[in-house]
Design a protein around this nucleic acid. Structure first.
Length: 414
RNA sequence: CGGGGCGUGGUGUCAACGGCUAGCACGAGUGGUUUGGGACCAUUUAGACAGGGUUCGAAUCCCUGCGCCCCGACCA
């Protein structure tokens, strides 16, 4: 893409009062536009990154046997009354609206009820189970306080997968597998070494659940790390004798390391709660009716995008991991647009995603904006670089630059 | 939902005593210079959150509403 055509522009200053690092950088670099508190529009650069994160999640969900669907945001009252979750007393962050005729509707904040109802049409026999369905969709939560940029919004992107199993044992097997699948996603996003499987008792679905917590100063939660090797932690609030006993965990409380962390995912065993509410059952091999055992597995691409920024930046700007960078290469031509065009064309032909800064502006400005945007590979072509033997290649996270002949450069990216 | 802070061009501003033409910087436009770290000169552009009130006079004081940020609570 030609940067001269990109309608967003980098800003030197962050919006007034915006303290959140991810919001500051993403807004300044033109990835997102803040519509209102906790509500963001994704601009060309931001959408590219968001889609890359979603794609990684999608690949891993598919690999784990997930089938992608897309459910409705509009939810009808009756469905949610079956579990009591229509009530504003029970769920305090509904956005509700209504039809012209006065029928009340809600905007989905999660989809357990909706999917249980759908699956009544498709689950009849033990032969139909198990299966796993997921979606990546906008969720709406009327948070009392949106904050921390993309990390806690009122309208945000969420991957929610739901598992449907014959028995608890069958469920448990998949649940265990999802722990690994989730860690794989976080590894691919470059945050694997900071992420811990975390014991939690906070959920309303079951007594215990697991969260995935990524250590970061920007986190809203506090975890205590139990096992560094196995990457297991516990929510600080849940660090009680009872919980430790239930999980058969032995720890020396004085030696636990506590860290602030970002909740980047959560997985729940739902049991029969929703299948009972919707009478979601199947006939087993002996013809007996059995309830379906459900689980739900959440992860937010938009929050992850905020988290990646929180974890990867310096004073100059964002430093995207290759896997989620909006472009692989930022090509900067200082005075050599013709040569740059050749490189741009050749790289593009190879399928390399290139943002070419072809604008007629000062070199300093180009470098400053490139650092802010944070594309991992920077190529500079100028009279100076050509004299030195080719094109300068520099990684965003390094101060070292090397000069490569154009052919070598093209070989390097394929 | 409790508490605190705040609202001035597209952006920023601990700029402006209740009083002169609302200043400065960034951005954007035009002309020129410059060309490896947000360069420079000239010139132009564009502003008081909304509504009410006090006053001869309000960006400035008061009220209401709306919005934003932070701390806490909450977080399926």
């Amino acid at each position: 893409m030609l940067q001269s055509k990109l309608f967003t522009k980098a800003q030197k200053q962050a919006p007034a009062g915006e303290v959140s690092l991810n919001a500051q950088l993403l807004i300044r670099a033109g990835f997102v536009h803040k519509e209102m508190a906790g509500v963001y529009s994704y601009l060309p650069l931001g959408l590219r990154t968001l889609n890359k994160i979603s794609d990684i999640i999608r690949q891993e969900m598919d690999a784990a046997g997930g089938q992608e669907i897309f459910m409705t945001v509009l939810q009808d009252r009756e469905t949610w009354e079956k579990t009591g979750r229509w009530s504003d007393e029970v769920v305090d962050n509904w956005f509700k609206t209504e039809l012209k005729n006065g029928t009340q509707l809600g905007l989905g904040f999660t989809h357990e009820e909706a999917i249980a109802k759908i699956m009544k049409n498709y689950v009849a026999s033990y032969k139909d189970l198990p299966f796993y369905a997921y979606q990546i969709q906008t969720k709406f939560r009327n948070e009392a306080r949106a904050k921390a940029g993309l990390m806690r919004g009122r309208e945000f992107f969420m991957k929610d997968l739901y598992s449907f199993s014959k028995t608890k044992e069958e469920h448990d097997e998949f649940y265990e597998k999802m722990k690994e699948v989730y860690m794989k996603v976080f590894s691919r996003l470059g945050m694997g070494d900071k992420t811990y499987l975390t014991i939690s008792s906070g959920g309303s679905f079951s007594k215990y659940s697991y969260e995935f917590q990524t250590v970061s100063k920007a986190g809203e939660d506090m975890i205590a790390i139990i096992d560094e090797e196995k990457r297991i932690a516990i929510n600080k609030d849940d660090l009680t004798d009872e919980v430790l006993k239930d999980f058969a965990v032995k720890v020396d409380r004085d030696k636990l390391r506590e860290e602030k962390s970002i909740e980047v995912g959560d997985i729940y065993s739902l049991g029969y709660k929703y299948s009972e509410a919707f009478n979601l059952k199947y006939k087993d091999e002996s013809g007996q009716d059995q309830m379906v055992y459900m689980g739900s597995y959440g992860m937010s691409p938009s929050r992850l995008m905020g988290a990646v920024v929180e974890l990867n930046s310096d004073a100059k700007g964002i430093i995207w991991p290759e896997a989620v960078a909006p472009f692989a290469v930022h090509l900067i031509s200082l005075d050599q647009n013709e040569k740059a065009l050749e490189i741009y064309k050749q790289l593009s032909q190879k399928g390399v995603e290139v943002l070419w800064d072809d604008r007629q502006i000062g070199a300093g400005e180009k470098f400053a904006e490139a650092d802010l945007i944070g594309i991992p590979n920077r190529m500079v072509i100028s009279a100076k670089s050509l004299t030195a033997g080719g094109v300068e290649l520099k990684k965003r996270d390094s101060d070292q630059a090397e000069i490569l002949p154009i052919e070598k450069l093209l070989e390097k990216f394929s």
